[in-house]
Design a protein around this nucleic acid. Structure first.
Lengths: 127, 127
DNA sequence: TGACAACTACGAAACACTTCGTAGACAATG
DNA sequence: CATTGTCTACGAAGTGTTTCGTAGTTGTCA
């Protein structure tokens, strides 16, 4: 079984992960460019180094330019975050979280149908 | 319109808020007792003082023993956290968050029905 | 009143997070 | 070959979080 990351990602780390998920394996420069000019190059580099230690990303140590890749998929990370959030904020009740989410942002018709379908599946498994 | 809290609560702050939501207005001692013996009395006190500055709690400064009260309801706080989470992790898509939540923990039959009802309401407002 | 108990305030330490400058290695270019 | 550019590594500062000891105040009670 695969062990999880050492810690959950911080806000700055999450911003970087979003770039890696969108772009796939990337160099520091590519990530930096994607994130605009709000951060110095070395800031991104340092964060990626720390994220490597935390096992949030893997890096291909090519001789000159390293290539970084998210160690966990976006879905896995969302899962970890939701699991943590359920415990810390929603008493472990997925229903409460779902209802807050739906109350916060309206979903599109198509999304609502998707959710409904998922609901039906769960209902099926439950008498 | 009421302004939000200065920052979103940290993990330790959230643990305290959970006690305040469950117990209602409480003294430091009551909160400390509720949280077991994992924290020194003064740790809780200090956190509550900081939370007062951040406007996460209000305190009744009775002459001898202060009484603290959550400044925001559990629902309001959950709302703030979910809003933040949607932006940071789910591309603003409530549907993605909902589906991760449902995939994480099975909800009870009754909860599923509640969710379904909410879904119907949203569908009503959306042709 | 003197000792004790309970309370707040404060300061400081330990740690995590975020930022970026500087240094050193190395390749490319004129 | 010297200069310039790009890369990694490292250190350190500034801020926020979490922890708790110590000091000082006040109320209680024998």
């Amino acid at each position: 079984m695969a062990a999880g990351p050492d810690r959950k990602p911080t806000d700055a780390e999450l911003a970087i992960l979003r770039v890696l998920w969108a772009r796939g394996p990337s160099t520091v420069r590519e990530v930096a460019r994607e994130m605009g000019r709000e951060h110095a190059y070395t800031t991104i580099l340092k964060l990626l180094q720390i994220m490597t230690e935390k096992r949030l990303v893997r890096r291909d140590e090519s001789p000159r330019t390293h290539v970084y890749e998210a160690a966990w998929t976006e879905g896995q990370t969302q899962q970890q975050i939701v699991t943590d959030l359920l415990e810390r904020v929603f008493d472990g009740s997925a229903a409460k979280l779902v209802m807050q989410a739906l109350a916060t942002r309206k979903a599109s018709r198509k999304e609502l149908d998707e959710i409904r379908k998922l609901l039906d599946q769960q209902r099926g498994g439950r008498k």
